[in-house]
Design a protein around this nucleic acid. Sequence first.
DNA 1: ACAATATCCGAGTAAATTGCTAAGATATGA
DNA 2: TCATATCTTAGCAATTTACTCGGATATTGT
Lengths: 149, 149
Amino acid sequence: MKLSTRGEYGLQAMFDLAQHCGEGPISIKTIAERQGISEPYLEQLIAALRKAGLVRSIRGAQGGYILNRDPEDITVGDIIRVLEGPIAPVECLTHEGESCAKADTCVTRDIWEKVRDSISDVLDSFTLADMVAKANKMRQDDKSYMYYI
Amino acid sequence: MKLSTRGEYGLQAMFDLAQHCGEGPISIKTIAERQGISEPYLEQLIAALRKAGLVRSIRGAQGGYILNRDPEDITVGDIIRVLEGPIAPVECLTHEGESCAKADTCVTRDIWEKVRDSISDVLDSFTLADMVAKANKMRQDDKSYMYYI
DNA sequence: ACAATATCCGAGTAAATTGCTAAGATATGA
DNA sequence: TCATATCTTAGCAATTTACTCGGATATTGT
Protein backbone atom coordinates (compact mmCIF):
# COMPACT_ATOMS: atom_id res chain seq x y z
CA MET A 1 0.00 0.00 0.00
CA LYS A 2 2.75 2.40 -0.91
CA LEU A 3 2.86 5.38 -3.21
CA SER A 4 5.75 5.37 -5.69
CA THR A 5 8.17 8.27 -5.90
CA ARG A 6 6.15 9.53 -8.87
CA GLY A 7 3.37 10.64 -6.58
CA GLU A 8 5.71 11.96 -3.92
CA TYR A 9 7.96 13.91 -6.28
CA GLY A 10 5.07 15.11 -8.39
CA LEU A 11 3.27 16.52 -5.39
CA GLN A 12 6.48 18.23 -4.25
CA ALA A 13 6.92 19.76 -7.69
CA MET A 14 3.34 20.98 -7.82
CA PHE A 15 3.68 22.42 -4.33
CA ASP A 16 6.80 24.24 -5.49
CA LEU A 17 4.88 25.70 -8.43
CA ALA A 18 2.07 26.76 -6.12
CA GLN A 19 4.49 28.42 -3.72
CA HIS A 20 6.03 30.42 -6.54
CA CYS A 21 2.75 31.07 -8.26
CA GLY A 22 2.80 34.47 -9.99
CA GLU A 23 6.58 34.60 -10.39
CA GLY A 24 6.39 33.60 -14.06
CA PRO A 25 7.41 30.25 -15.51
CA ILE A 26 9.59 28.03 -13.33
CA SER A 27 12.06 25.70 -15.05
CA ILE A 28 12.44 22.02 -14.28
CA LYS A 29 16.01 22.73 -13.28
CA THR A 30 14.87 25.16 -10.58
CA ILE A 31 12.22 22.82 -9.20
CA ALA A 32 14.56 19.83 -9.28
CA GLU A 33 17.20 21.75 -7.33
CA ARG A 34 14.81 23.18 -4.75
CA GLN A 35 13.05 19.85 -4.17
CA GLY A 36 16.04 17.56 -4.55
CA ILE A 37 14.72 15.54 -7.46
CA SER A 38 16.58 14.22 -10.53
CA GLU A 39 16.06 16.64 -13.42
CA PRO A 40 15.30 14.25 -16.30
CA TYR A 41 13.10 12.15 -14.05
CA LEU A 42 11.08 15.17 -13.01
CA GLU A 43 10.75 16.03 -16.69
CA GLN A 44 8.77 12.83 -17.19
CA LEU A 45 6.49 13.51 -14.28
CA ILE A 46 5.78 17.08 -15.35
CA ALA A 47 5.04 15.83 -18.87
CA ALA A 48 2.24 13.71 -17.44
CA LEU A 49 0.93 16.62 -15.40
CA ARG A 50 0.95 18.81 -18.49
CA LYS A 51 -0.93 16.26 -20.59
CA ALA A 52 -3.49 16.05 -17.81
CA GLY A 53 -3.92 19.83 -17.95
CA LEU A 54 -2.68 20.57 -14.44
CA VAL A 55 0.29 22.66 -15.59
CA ARG A 56 1.03 24.75 -18.66
CA SER A 57 4.45 24.97 -20.31
CA ILE A 58 6.28 27.89 -21.87
CA ARG A 59 9.00 26.69 -24.22
CA GLY A 60 12.31 28.27 -25.07
CA ALA A 61 14.74 30.34 -23.02
CA GLN A 62 13.29 31.75 -19.79
CA GLY A 63 10.57 29.17 -20.24
CA GLY A 64 9.24 26.73 -17.69
CA TYR A 65 5.99 25.68 -16.10
CA ILE A 66 3.11 27.39 -14.35
CA LEU A 67 -0.03 26.00 -12.76
CA ASN A 68 -2.91 25.83 -15.20
CA ARG A 69 -5.52 26.36 -12.45
CA ASP A 70 -5.60 28.29 -9.21
CA PRO A 71 -3.87 26.49 -6.32
CA GLU A 72 -7.20 26.25 -4.50
CA ASP A 73 -8.64 24.39 -7.50
CA ILE A 74 -5.99 21.67 -7.59
CA THR A 75 -6.31 18.90 -5.04
CA VAL A 76 -3.70 16.38 -3.97
CA GLY A 77 -6.03 13.74 -5.41
CA ASP A 78 -5.89 15.38 -8.84
CA ILE A 79 -2.11 15.09 -8.81
CA ILE A 80 -1.88 11.57 -7.39
CA ARG A 81 -4.40 10.18 -9.85
CA VAL A 82 -2.40 11.55 -12.78
CA LEU A 83 0.90 10.16 -11.58
CA GLU A 84 -0.14 6.92 -9.90
CA GLY A 85 -3.17 5.94 -11.94
CA PRO A 86 -6.64 5.43 -10.54
CA ILE A 87 -6.86 5.10 -6.78
CA ALA A 88 -7.87 1.48 -6.17
CA PRO A 89 -6.41 -1.02 -3.72
CA VAL A 90 -7.16 -3.92 -6.06
CA GLU A 91 -7.02 -4.35 -9.81
CA CYS A 92 -10.69 -5.26 -10.20
CA LEU A 93 -11.82 -1.79 -9.07
CA THR A 94 -9.88 0.07 -11.76
CA HIS A 95 -12.14 -0.94 -14.65
CA GLU A 96 -15.06 1.01 -13.27
CA GLY A 97 -17.47 0.31 -16.08
CA GLU A 98 -17.43 -3.46 -16.30
CA SER A 99 -17.71 -5.30 -13.02
CA CYS A 100 -15.53 -8.35 -12.51
CA ALA A 101 -17.02 -11.78 -13.11
CA LYS A 102 -17.32 -12.64 -9.43
CA ALA A 103 -18.66 -9.21 -8.40
CA ASP A 104 -21.99 -10.40 -6.98
CA THR A 105 -20.48 -13.22 -4.95
CA CYS A 106 -17.32 -11.34 -3.98
CA VAL A 107 -17.32 -10.53 -0.26
CA THR A 108 -14.14 -8.49 -0.39
CA ARG A 109 -15.21 -6.06 -3.08
CA ASP A 110 -17.14 -3.66 -0.88
CA ILE A 111 -14.25 -3.59 1.57
CA TRP A 112 -11.89 -2.44 -1.19
CA GLU A 113 -14.50 0.02 -2.39
CA LYS A 114 -14.68 1.63 1.04
CA VAL A 115 -10.89 1.77 1.24
CA ARG A 116 -10.73 3.43 -2.14
CA ASP A 117 -13.39 5.98 -1.27
CA SER A 118 -11.78 6.89 2.03
CA ILE A 119 -8.41 7.44 0.35
CA SER A 120 -10.05 9.55 -2.34
CA ASP A 121 -11.91 11.64 0.20
CA VAL A 122 -8.75 12.46 2.13
CA LEU A 123 -6.68 13.24 -0.97
CA ASP A 124 -9.39 15.44 -2.43
CA SER A 125 -9.78 17.35 0.82
CA PHE A 126 -6.35 18.98 0.45
CA THR A 127 -5.60 21.63 -2.17
CA LEU A 128 -2.25 23.11 -3.13
CA ALA A 129 -3.46 26.36 -1.57
CA ASP A 130 -3.92 24.54 1.74
CA MET A 131 -0.36 23.28 1.55
CA VAL A 132 1.07 26.71 0.78
CA ALA A 133 -0.95 28.23 3.62
CA LYS A 134 0.37 25.61 5.98
CA ALA A 135 3.96 26.14 4.83
CA ASN A 136 3.60 29.90 5.36
CA LYS A 137 2.13 29.36 8.80
CA MET A 138 5.04 27.06 9.68
CA ARG A 139 7.52 29.71 8.63
CA GLN A 140 5.58 32.27 10.65
CA ASP A 141 5.70 30.05 13.72
CA ASP A 142 9.41 29.52 13.21
CA LYS A 143 10.01 33.28 13.12
CA SER A 144 7.98 34.04 16.24
CA TYR A 145 9.89 31.28 17.99
CA MET A 146 13.16 32.88 16.95
CA TYR A 147 12.17 36.19 18.57
CA TYR A 148 11.86 34.48 21.93
CA ILE A 149 15.43 33.18 21.96
CA MET B 1 -1.65 2.52 -4.32
CA LYS B 2 -2.23 -1.14 -4.97
CA LEU B 3 -2.32 -4.12 -2.70
CA SER B 4 -0.20 -7.05 -3.88
CA THR B 5 -1.66 -10.51 -4.37
CA ARG B 6 -0.29 -11.40 -0.93
CA GLY B 7 -2.96 -9.34 0.76
CA GLU B 8 -5.68 -10.42 -1.63
CA TYR B 9 -4.91 -14.14 -1.48
CA GLY B 10 -4.22 -14.05 2.23
CA LEU B 11 -7.58 -12.47 2.96
CA GLN B 12 -9.30 -15.04 0.75
CA ALA B 13 -7.57 -17.85 2.59
CA MET B 14 -8.48 -16.45 6.00
CA PHE B 15 -12.06 -15.99 4.86
CA ASP B 16 -12.08 -19.63 3.76
CA LEU B 17 -10.83 -20.71 7.18
CA ALA B 18 -13.50 -18.57 8.84
CA GLN B 19 -16.22 -20.03 6.66
CA HIS B 20 -15.18 -23.56 7.60
CA CYS B 21 -14.46 -22.71 11.20
CA GLY B 22 -15.27 -25.70 13.44
CA GLU B 23 -14.76 -28.31 10.73
CA GLY B 24 -11.32 -29.22 12.02
CA PRO B 25 -8.00 -28.39 10.35
CA ILE B 26 -8.16 -27.34 6.69
CA SER B 27 -5.21 -28.17 4.46
CA ILE B 28 -3.47 -25.72 2.17
CA LYS B 29 -4.45 -27.94 -0.73
CA THR B 30 -8.14 -27.55 0.10
CA ILE B 31 -7.94 -23.80 0.51
CA ALA B 32 -5.85 -23.39 -2.63
CA GLU B 33 -8.37 -25.37 -4.67
CA ARG B 34 -11.43 -23.61 -3.27
CA GLN B 35 -9.94 -20.13 -3.66
CA GLY B 36 -8.01 -20.72 -6.87
CA ILE B 37 -4.57 -19.92 -5.49
CA SER B 38 -1.25 -21.64 -6.21
CA GLU B 39 -0.53 -24.17 -3.48
CA PRO B 40 3.16 -23.48 -2.70
CA TYR B 41 2.56 -19.74 -2.90
CA LEU B 42 -0.27 -19.93 -0.42
CA GLU B 43 2.05 -21.95 1.81
CA GLN B 44 4.30 -18.91 2.14
CA LEU B 45 1.43 -16.60 2.96
CA ILE B 46 0.00 -18.92 5.59
CA ALA B 47 3.45 -19.28 7.13
CA ALA B 48 3.49 -15.53 7.73
CA LEU B 49 -0.02 -15.63 9.19
CA ARG B 50 1.02 -18.45 11.49
CA LYS B 51 4.13 -16.62 12.72
CA ALA B 52 1.90 -13.63 13.42
CA GLY B 53 -0.37 -15.83 15.51
CA LEU B 54 -3.48 -15.47 13.37
CA VAL B 55 -3.68 -19.18 12.50
CA ARG B 56 -2.54 -22.36 14.18
CA SER B 57 -1.19 -25.39 12.35
CA ILE B 58 -1.67 -29.10 12.92
CA ARG B 59 1.08 -31.11 11.27
CA GLY B 60 0.97 -34.56 9.72
CA ALA B 61 -1.77 -36.44 7.89
CA GLN B 62 -5.25 -34.96 8.29
CA GLY B 63 -3.47 -31.84 9.46
CA GLY B 64 -3.98 -28.30 8.28
CA TYR B 65 -4.79 -24.88 9.66
CA ILE B 66 -7.42 -23.37 11.91
CA LEU B 67 -8.01 -19.82 13.03
CA ASN B 68 -6.21 -19.02 16.26
CA ARG B 69 -8.85 -16.48 17.33
CA ASP B 70 -12.59 -16.19 16.84
CA PRO B 71 -13.59 -14.80 13.42
CA GLU B 72 -15.10 -11.74 15.14
CA ASP B 73 -11.71 -11.02 16.72
CA ILE B 74 -9.74 -10.98 13.46
CA THR B 75 -10.02 -7.86 11.34
CA VAL B 76 -9.08 -7.39 7.71
CA GLY B 77 -6.48 -4.92 8.96
CA ASP B 78 -4.82 -7.61 11.07
CA ILE B 79 -4.39 -9.77 8.00
CA ILE B 80 -3.28 -7.03 5.62
CA ARG B 81 -0.67 -5.69 8.03
CA VAL B 82 0.89 -9.15 8.35
CA LEU B 83 1.07 -9.76 4.62
CA GLU B 84 1.72 -6.29 3.24
CA GLY B 85 3.68 -4.71 6.06
CA PRO B 86 2.67 -1.57 7.92
CA ILE B 87 -0.06 0.49 6.29
CA ALA B 88 1.64 3.70 5.16
CA PRO B 89 1.39 5.49 1.83
CA VAL B 90 4.97 6.76 2.11
CA GLU B 91 8.16 5.24 3.45
CA CYS B 92 8.77 7.92 6.08
CA LEU B 93 5.65 6.92 8.02
CA THR B 94 6.71 3.31 8.51
CA HIS B 95 9.42 4.06 11.08
CA GLU B 96 6.92 5.26 13.65
CA GLY B 97 9.34 5.94 16.45
CA GLU B 98 11.87 8.23 14.81
CA SER B 99 10.44 11.06 12.75
CA CYS B 100 12.12 11.87 9.46
CA ALA B 101 14.64 14.70 9.34
CA LYS B 102 12.29 17.11 7.58
CA ALA B 103 9.23 16.24 9.71
CA ASP B 104 8.65 19.73 11.12
CA THR B 105 8.95 21.49 7.77
CA CYS B 106 7.25 18.76 5.74
CA VAL B 107 3.84 19.93 4.49
CA THR B 108 2.92 16.58 2.99
CA ARG B 109 3.42 14.49 6.11
CA ASP B 110 0.06 15.16 7.74
CA ILE B 111 -1.68 14.42 4.45
CA TRP B 112 -0.09 10.97 4.34
CA GLU B 113 -0.88 10.48 8.01
CA LYS B 114 -4.56 11.12 7.38
CA VAL B 115 -4.54 8.77 4.40
CA ARG B 116 -2.93 6.07 6.51
CA ASP B 117 -5.40 6.51 9.36
CA SER B 118 -8.42 6.41 7.08
CA ILE B 119 -7.21 3.20 5.44
CA SER B 120 -6.55 1.65 8.84
CA ASP B 121 -9.97 2.64 10.12
CA VAL B 122 -11.75 1.02 7.20
CA LEU B 123 -9.66 -2.17 7.28
CA ASP B 124 -10.10 -2.54 11.03
CA SER B 125 -13.85 -2.04 10.79
CA PHE B 126 -14.34 -5.38 9.01
CA THR B 127 -13.92 -8.73 10.77
CA LEU B 128 -13.85 -12.20 9.27
CA ALA B 129 -17.18 -12.80 11.00
CA ASP B 130 -18.66 -9.84 9.09
CA MET B 131 -17.47 -11.35 5.84
CA VAL B 132 -18.89 -14.78 6.61
CA ALA B 133 -22.21 -13.20 7.64
CA LYS B 134 -22.32 -11.29 4.40
CA ALA B 135 -21.50 -14.38 2.34
CA ASN B 136 -24.27 -16.31 4.07
CA LYS B 137 -26.73 -13.49 3.48
CA MET B 138 -25.78 -13.44 -0.20
CA ARG B 139 -26.41 -17.17 -0.45
CA GLN B 140 -29.72 -16.69 1.34
CA ASP B 141 -30.74 -13.94 -1.11
CA ASP B 142 -29.77 -16.18 -3.98
CA LYS B 143 -31.95 -18.99 -2.68
CA SER B 144 -35.02 -16.85 -2.09
CA TYR B 145 -34.56 -15.48 -5.56
CA MET B 146 -34.49 -19.03 -6.94
CA TYR B 147 -37.83 -19.84 -5.33
CA TYR B 148 -39.49 -17.07 -7.29
CA ILE B 149 -38.44 -18.43 -10.68
C1' DA C 1 7.26 -50.52 10.44
C1' DC C 2 5.83 -47.88 6.72
C1' DA C 3 3.37 -45.45 3.40
C1' DA C 4 0.51 -41.50 2.76
C1' DT C 5 -0.37 -36.99 3.91
C1' DA C 6 0.66 -32.85 5.77
C1' DT C 7 3.28 -28.86 7.43
C1' DC C 8 7.81 -26.58 7.35
C1' DC C 9 11.90 -24.21 5.30
C1' DG C 10 15.16 -22.21 2.15
C1' DA C 11 16.64 -21.24 -2.33
C1' DG C 12 15.93 -19.98 -6.96
C1' DT C 13 13.79 -17.51 -10.91
C1' DA C 14 11.09 -15.30 -14.77
C1' DA C 15 8.47 -11.26 -15.46
C1' DA C 16 7.07 -6.83 -14.25
C1' DT C 17 7.80 -2.48 -12.16
C1' DT C 18 10.49 1.31 -10.47
C1' DG C 19 13.52 4.91 -10.80
C1' DC C 20 16.13 6.48 -13.17
C1' DT C 21 19.77 8.04 -17.45
C1' DA C 22 20.88 9.41 -22.30
C1' DA C 23 20.35 11.46 -26.71
C1' DG C 24 18.56 14.29 -29.57
C1' DA C 25 14.70 17.16 -31.73
C1' DT C 26 12.21 21.49 -31.21
C1' DA C 27 11.07 26.13 -29.72
C1' DT C 28 12.09 30.79 -28.02
C1' DG C 29 14.38 34.95 -26.13
C1' DA C 30 18.57 37.99 -26.04
C1' DT D 1 22.67 32.39 -33.82
C1' DC D 2 23.67 30.88 -29.43
C1' DA D 3 22.06 29.77 -24.96
C1' DT D 4 18.30 28.02 -22.63
C1' DA D 5 14.40 25.72 -22.28
C1' DT D 6 10.83 22.16 -23.24
C1' DC D 7 9.64 17.84 -25.62
C1' DT D 8 10.11 12.84 -27.01
C1' DT D 9 11.73 8.27 -27.20
C1' DA D 10 14.54 4.67 -25.86
C1' DG D 11 17.11 2.03 -22.80
C1' DC D 12 18.62 -0.03 -18.49
C1' DA D 13 20.06 -1.54 -13.75
C1' DA D 14 18.01 -2.66 -9.45
C1' DT D 15 14.22 -4.11 -7.00
C1' DT D 16 9.99 -6.33 -6.23
C1' DT D 17 6.46 -9.61 -7.31
C1' DA D 18 4.61 -13.91 -7.87
C1' DC D 19 5.69 -17.59 -8.11
C1' DT D 20 8.23 -22.75 -8.39
C1' DC D 21 11.17 -26.54 -6.58
C1' DG D 22 13.35 -29.68 -3.51
C1' DG D 23 13.61 -31.69 0.47
C1' DA D 24 13.30 -32.11 5.73
C1' DT D 25 10.03 -33.06 9.43
C1' DA D 26 5.82 -34.52 11.76
C1' DT D 27 1.58 -37.31 12.23
C1' DT D 28 -1.96 -40.72 11.19
C1' DG D 29 -3.95 -44.95 9.53
C1' DT D 30 -2.83 -49.76 8.03
